[in-house]
Every structure is written in structure tokens, then in C-alpha cells.
């Protein structure tokens, strides 16, 4: 005769890898919105990215609205 029962196990341990991923998202997101001055696009576009600052302009209004120093 077989019997089925469900046991609920509560695990308190927080997965380190998940925390690391969230830490990376935090750092990257903060940099993109608050601090990039052409750095990211310069990886593909070279020095001209620092002149065009497309990402800076795209996040410009949010940068001000969220309180980051902009220019």
C-alpha cells in the first residue's frame, strides 16, 4: 500500500549566486542611468562615444529626476 504526503521544507539559506547577480544588476543599472558619459558605447564605437554620449542623453531626464549630478 502506498501513501503520499507532502512535507514543506523551509530553507533559510539565501543563494549566493542570486545575490551576486542582483549585485551586478544594481551596479550596472546605477552606472548606466547615473554615471555613464559614453563609457559603455565606447567599447563598440571608440572615442567618438564620449562626444556623442547617446546613453547619457537617453537617460538625461531620468538622471535629473532621480537626483544624480548630471552636468
Amino acid at each position: 500500500m502506498s501513501q503520499s504526503k507532502e512535507i514543506t521544507v523551509s530553507k533559510s539559506k539565501t543563494p549566493i549566486l542570486a545575490l551576486v547577480i542582483l549585485g551586478i544588476v544594481f551596479g550596472m543599472g546605477l552606472f548606466v542611468v547615473g554615471y555613464d558619459q559614453g563609457h559603455l558605447f565606447s567599447l563598440a564605437l571608440g572615442e567618438s562615444a564620449y562626444e556623442d554620449i547617446y546613453l547619457h542623453e537617453l537617460t538625461h531626464d531620468m538622471r535629473h529626476a532621480a537626483g544624480f549630478p548630471c552636468h
Partner: peptide, 14 residues
């Protein structure tokens, strides 16, 4: 045009 996208990125960061 970047306001909502940047908001989403900043929201994910925070």
C-alpha cells in the same frame, strides 16, 4: 523618450 526605459533600468537597480 528615455525616461521610461531609464526608469525601468534604475528601478531594477534599486
Amino acid at each position: 523618450s528615455g525616461m521610461v526605459l531609464a526608469g525601468g533600468i534604475l528601478g531594477m537597480a534599486i
